[in-house]
Design a protein around this nucleic acid. Sequence first.
DNA 1: CGCGAGGTTGATTGGGCTCAATACAAGTGG
DNA 2: CCACTTGTATTGAGCCCAATCAACCTCGCG
Lengths: 239, 239
Amino acid sequence: MNPTQIRPAARFSPALNRLSKLARLDAAAHSALSDAIARPQVLRPRRDLLIEGRDVPHPQLILSGWAARVRILPDGRRQFLNFLLPGDLIGLYHHSRPVSPTTIVTLTEVTVCVPPAPGSHATLDEAYALSQALDEAHLLSQIARLGRMNAMERIGDLMLELHERLSLSDLTQGRSYELPITQETLADALGLTAVHVNRMLQAARRAGDLIWSTRSMTIPDPQQLARKVGRSPVRVLAP
Amino acid sequence: MNPTQIRPAARFSPALNRLSKLARLDAAAHSALSDAIARPQVLRPRRDLLIEGRDVPHPQLILSGWAARVRILPDGRRQFLNFLLPGDLIGLYHHSRPVSPTTIVTLTEVTVCVPPAPGSHATLDEAYALSQALDEAHLLSQIARLGRMNAMERIGDLMLELHERLSLSDLTQGRSYELPITQETLADALGLTAVHVNRMLQAARRAGDLIWSTRSMTIPDPQQLARKVGRSPVRVLAP
DNA sequence: CGCGAGGTTGATTGGGCTCAATACAAGTGG
DNA sequence: CCACTTGTATTGAGCCCAATCAACCTCGCG
């Protein structure tokens, strides 16, 4: 079956699911979101979704594919600041005339839409706020990762985070998930070189911690890996 | 003159100034903020302002002193995620029952107050949103710093950022500012060891880039240093 | 005067980088 | 169908930046 023939609501259900799980959307919010999703926009890989220093015209919701915030140093060194996955919001600010603090670039083919403006549905606003809080928590984790973890721990920790995040939008298959990025991209997210990431991934496989093959990642024992790298799950909500 | 005898509005003017500069506060917002500032709370160094995983009871505004978000790894490694300076807001979330993603600890004696709740003054909300956007931009910078800069660049870049931020609240004296933290604290913010920070600070002095003495930092030529470490100022607002 | 925190210095080690070559698969055009 | 290109992954050798370990110094302060 050709995936383009699937109804948007079904094709982009991961993004919808994520927001629905964050806050229980009422019928009106859900319907407004569905309407927005019905007007998707597709971008090829390596296209800019936002550009550092430019005005942010409106927020966007990732419906499918992977993107990343990126910062390039004057001499060409590149750092991916965080990954943006289906269900993630970008460019959502609450002040007037916002300017993007970073460029956001697509890593794969990406589908986005313009979500309902904040302030129209209380439950949706709650989902937006939660999404933003999660985003902040992930940035903080990224800082600790880069500042105080060694290469092996960084990789393990990030792979666990991605599993955690993707499972929120039902994009995991048990202990596996699609990881549609190159080792070089991974390196630029982890503050390492591609060569070293390659060696560490092999070491992780030998240790039975991570199995990477053909754009897919498997974590045989997430609990054990979490213990090994000293990771605790991200939480922003009281139980 | 004993500083405790100064009126709160004057003593804590740096924090007030910062928020006033972010958005032009109208009289009502300014007065509400002044009322809040009139009920300050003082904390000694090394006290927790928020604890990771615990409920956030209400937002807080730093009136004086330095604090930091911190993450401790199970084996004791410590990473300061960002510094919190006078005028910075903490624990401001827009969803119900927020939980703090990190512990926040005072580095010096710190004065805080509970700022007016969001939603009561439009200009104040604008200032809150801008403050939050700046905060996010600084987190992103911290990620690039840790991921892709060497020790010397990290130090220069952070010292420039602090100068930039402190000047927003008029806490700079020309090219100098008070830096009331130890080299070990700096090391934990920069993902380095205290020993190495010490060596690099000496090298920076020899190079004429930074002059650190008795808790005070001077940047003889900010422009030149910015060029040297490849830094561009943080902006979140269209001009 | 003794103590402790913070700062300084030297010697050594090592994790991750650099440079370089090779392998391999997917296109792509002749 | 093959030659060629391009992007990605892999492997090896050597080096360097920052960590580690260990003294020692300085100063404020009880």
